[in-house]
Amino acid sequence: MAFREAMIAQRLAGERLHLSHGPMDVVLRGWGAAHEVAAAELAAAARFATILQELVAELPTLRAAVGAETRLDGPVARRMLAGCLPFARQGVFVTAMAAVAGAVADEVLAAMRAAAPGLRRAYVNDGGDIAVFVAPGESLTLGMVADPAGSPARAGGCARGPVADFDGTLSLGHGMGIGGVATSGRHGRSFSLGIADAVTVLARDAATADAAATLIANAVDVESPAVRRRAARALDPDSDLGDRPVTVSLGPLDEAEIAAALDAGAARAEAWCRAGLIRGAALRLAGRARIAGASVPALPEHAA
């Protein structure tokens, strides 16, 4: 499969750069001296233009279940594998595709930093899966969507921590050990085995955050007549989920069902926080929320 169309680059408001190539889209920005930012953007565009064909070359392996024997060659594919393998070792089914957006963001950010070592802060946003860099003495605040379905999150039923910690803005500083923020759920671009409206994860890099968000969102689930599912392959013959049932619609749930689903997802998130695989997670379903792990303060400046 060849993608012959050229990569498209366009300037957006707020000094952001949008790069698009085939099905891939990223929005990025760097802060620093003008020559550093220019070098970072040129490097990002050059690296982004080569990624898609690299991934297509290894697509069969990328769509297969990750295991100890999995071998991948391309740098982005290896980032995908590294992001997923720790969770596969926990006995969870996952393919490298669970980390594709985060791994692309990580790779483009790495290219920016290599070309412009004087950058003060930077981010690469691949459809909501975001790789971030913050130099010492700097902070970067990301705008967060509280609920992709559009209903306001309510604090009722929270297991721990204020819902506001992950609502509105999320401020990251140097030394926090957070290089990636990712969100997944049944409203996202990919199929979900669970019913979460959204799961946002903080981790050491975007590939890990992307994989963890997908897998925690899968765990937010409950058996209920309100959940309608179909085999992934019936919706997309090329899906890496094969015949596994994915959620296609969700009717009203009662309070016990909402609590049970969030409890299941929160248990997975807390276990992975304790294991050091992720820093924190926010889980949302039907206006209820759970917070696991890190509590991150919100600040009003440097919004991305």
Rank of each mutant, 00 (worst) to 15 (best):
residue 35 H to C: 11
residue 35 H to Q: 12
residue 36 E to F: 02
residue 37 V to G: 09
residue 38 A to R: 11
residue 39 A to C: 09
residue 39 A to F: 03
residue 40 A to Y: 03
residue 41 E to D: 14
residue 43 A to K: 03
residue 43 A to E: 14
residue 44 A to H: 03
residue 44 A to M: 11
residue 45 A to S: 02
residue 45 A to H: 02
residue 45 A to C: 09
residue 48 F to L: 08
residue 48 F to P: 06
residue 48 F to V: 15
residue 51 I to N: 03
residue 51 I to A: 08
residue 51 I to M: 03
residue 51 I to S: 06
residue 51 I to K: 07
residue 51 I to G: 06
residue 51 I to W: 05
residue 52 L to H: 06
residue 53 Q to C: 04
residue 53 Q to S: 12
residue 54 E to Q: 04
residue 55 L to A: 15
residue 55 L to V: 13
residue 56 V to H: 09
residue 56 V to E: 11
residue 56 V to D: 06
residue 58 E to S: 03
residue 62 L to C: 11
residue 62 L to W: 10
residue 62 L to S: 03
residue 63 R to D: 09
residue 64 A to R: 06
residue 64 A to G: 15
residue 65 A to K: 11
residue 66 V to P: 05
residue 68 A to Y: 00
residue 69 E to T: 08
residue 69 E to Y: 03
residue 70 T to S: 15
residue 70 T to K: 04
residue 72 L to N: 00
residue 72 L to D: 00
residue 73 D to A: 13
residue 73 D to R: 00
residue 75 P to T: 05
residue 77 A to Y: 09
residue 78 R to I: 09
residue 79 R to G: 12
residue 79 R to H: 08
residue 80 M to S: 14
residue 80 M to H: 14
residue 82 A to L: 05
residue 82 A to K: 07
residue 84 C to S: 13
residue 85 L to W: 09
residue 86 P to Q: 14
residue 87 F to S: 03
residue 87 F to A: 02
residue 88 A to V: 09
residue 88 A to F: 06
residue 88 A to S: 06
residue 89 R to M: 13
residue 90 Q to F: 02
residue 93 F to T: 06
residue 93 F to D: 13
residue 93 F to L: 14
residue 94 V to C: 12
residue 96 A to Y: 03
residue 96 A to S: 09
residue 97 M to K: 07
residue 97 M to S: 01
residue 98 A to K: 00
residue 99 A to N: 10
residue 99 A to I: 05
residue 100 V to I: 15
residue 100 V to M: 15
residue 102 G to M: 08
residue 103 A to L: 10
residue 103 A to G: 10
residue 104 V to I: 15
residue 104 V to Q: 13
residue 108 V to C: 14
residue 110 A to D: 08
residue 111 A to W: 09
residue 112 M to Y: 11
residue 112 M to S: 08
